[in-house]
Design a protein around this nucleic acid. Structure first.
Lengths: 216, 216, 216, 216
DNA sequence: AATGAATGAGGGTTCATTCAT
DNA sequence: CATGAATGAACCCTCATTCAT
């Protein structure tokens, strides 16, 4: 029973599919906010201001800030998964090409966007103390690693790489990608996409010399 | 005077060098807290409780929470730097041995402690939106990378590795380490120290076959 | 036109007398809500959900939550007044019988419904700080007390009760009823309708021994 | 990590026994607030303003608003219990005197204070939907009723009241008191302490004519 | 007439910081 | 130096109210 000043302007009530749109709008605003202000600077006020919506709307669509953040993480993970599935789809049938396609994606402008990287690391930074984040990250990681591992196995099989352990290579490769993202985040003027890509393909060329070269 | 009037138990007055001890005590408590509760769960109350000291003491020794966190980051970075300098000191004169020593350190139990990794990633997760963190990380990164780069150059020079770009290798190597740490943080039951070490040395063995093997 | 296009189920349009029905529907939902969740747990969302209507409908029919609550109180008071008027109507002409009828009503299952009692006490609990509630309660109280007082006076007059002050008796009687309701609300397993009724009639039998006995 | 403007004025930190004082200070402020603004108008801001303390202090001493309210109820109940125990202590040994002392207390200025009555009814109004309140009320009610019941039994035994059921009388008496309090709350200009007292003693005089008279 | 997404003031709560002791 | 009660800005969340549909 609170004295309330009448609302002034108002976004058109989104019917039907609009609900999903609002959610995405808020998730995107969250990503921008985390990128700009960090996890601790990401308040409901900040997110809704970024989305140009009212304060109460997050709880209307996500129940709580916590759930918004979880959904944001899922959104990012889904987006990335979609991207690498698409990349595989578009690439040829040869395992090396497919692996190259994944790596090219990882160093594409879209993925290496520093804002998005910042958000990924923000979630990773909280993962240890938030089981939910950790679980989500672990699950998507697993799917991705399986894929990379399968490709490495295929390459090892088809090529003549007797001493190569595909699992170790896959692990190292995926790890290097993550680490290069960190470099691009922390020292953007030391490690750029080009150097990152080169580091990655140097690795591949060293492991699978018959399949990869450093040159683009 | 009877024992009734015994002074309340209280922490030692700590003058001069004692002051430094208090600071370290608080920093260590901060590390434990960030590891356990995450960045957002790390409050002054939590830190001081962890240190078994009074609430007001942080501001006495660090002026503000912000500064405590910055000092904590510096502490971690210094500790790591000290560790790799010591590792180099202890190792022989050959570049490959020295590089191996660095890598062994990175996958030693002390460094791979999940609590400490959590704190590192917590800081990295906030780095984009906190210039101070980013600057500190960037600076220590730089020193470390210079070192690794120098070693790679030396190995390339002394060995016969015509097509190898030492900078790219060094970047990739350091990145892989970071990425493996992330794996140990997020999916500890998939990537353990042993696998991480193997992934790393697989890389080195592939790049510098005359200098490294995967076996310990 | 195929059944596919059937209109969404929706509440009847309710014109004219239908409007009154909607109001009652909402008031009854309010009563249920206050009984279950208390005053503070009674939100517009709760009330409309309870009434299986849409959120906006309260303001359409009552302008505000405040007015809904006032109307709810009036509804309860009217209902009770109607009940005791009916009880008097049904009873014989003798004052003692009429008073007994009022008391029987007060301990009838319909009136002693714990949900309704809870609502009454909810309003009484807010009365001091809400002049409107207090005024409404006071007004209905007055009418009721007048009636009880008149009956007591009649009994005193017709019987031989020289020392009895009918006003004090009426006041005490009405008060006892309220107090017994409170007991049934707070300690339902200590004071039930039977005990309450007995306490009340013990009082009447003591005051007006020629007119009342404790036995039903 | 919030930018905080330095606090200006500050109540002296209460050491040792001061903690208990602060709690009482806040409970008393809560009572005043509930009396004036009702349950729904009793906000943390209101309570702390009333206590001339800062906003955060309630959570420091009571953890939550809920607990403050529970403690307030307990405080009121304890206070009342203390009062009737004192009244019994001060009164003579005869059961009728002791019962009279309890009744005199119930209509004393201290107990009939409309602010306090308002708070009692505020709690009773929420009791149905708040098991904690109900439990506390029920427990204290029980003790009080036991006492009154015992006294009634003693009077019945010592006097010659063959048809009197002491339990019913005790229940009725306690109920009447509560009901008279409600009257004093809702219709203070109809029922004042004098009339209330008279109603109560009329009842006693009617039940126990050998022990009570209406006159003071 | 009816709906329910949207709004935002105001609520309870947290916590970095201060300062009397 | 050390303590911890006190402060109050800022947080997340609730919910009465509005209004496009």
């Amino acid at each position: 029973m609170r004295p309330t000043t009448a609302a002034r302007k108002r976004a058109a009530p989104a019917r039907g599919p609009g609900k999903e749109l609002r959610r995405e709008q808020l998730i995107k605003a969250t990503i921008r906010s985390v990128a700009r202000r960090g996890f601790s600077g990401t308040t409901m006020a900040e997110v809704t201001r970024e989305a140009r919506l009212s304060l109460g709307i997050v709880n209307l669509h996500f129940q709580s800030k916590d759930k918004l953040l979880v959904e944001t993480l899922r959104y990012l993970a889904d987006e990335y998964k979609q991207a690498w599935e698409d990349a595989l789809e578009r690439s040829g049938p040869r395992a090396a090409d497919r692996l190259a396609a994944l790596m090219e994606l990882d160093f594409s402008r879209a993925v290496c966007d520093r804002n998005k990287l910042a958000v990924w690391f923000a979630f990773w930074g909280e993962a240890k103390s938030r089981p939910t984040y950790q679980r989500i990250c672990a699950q998507y990681d697993h799917e991705y690693n399986e894929q990379v591992c399968a490709l490495c196995r295929a390459i090892v099989t088809e090529g003549d790489y007797p001493g190569v352990d595909p699992e170790a290579v896959a692990t190292g490769l995926a790890a290097m990608t993550d680490g290069l993202w960190l470099d691009m985040l922390i020292t953007p003027d030391v490690v750029d996409r080009k150097l990152a890509r080169k580091a990655c393909f140097s690795f591949l060329a060293a492991i699978f010399p018959a399949h990869f070269t450093v040159a683009p």
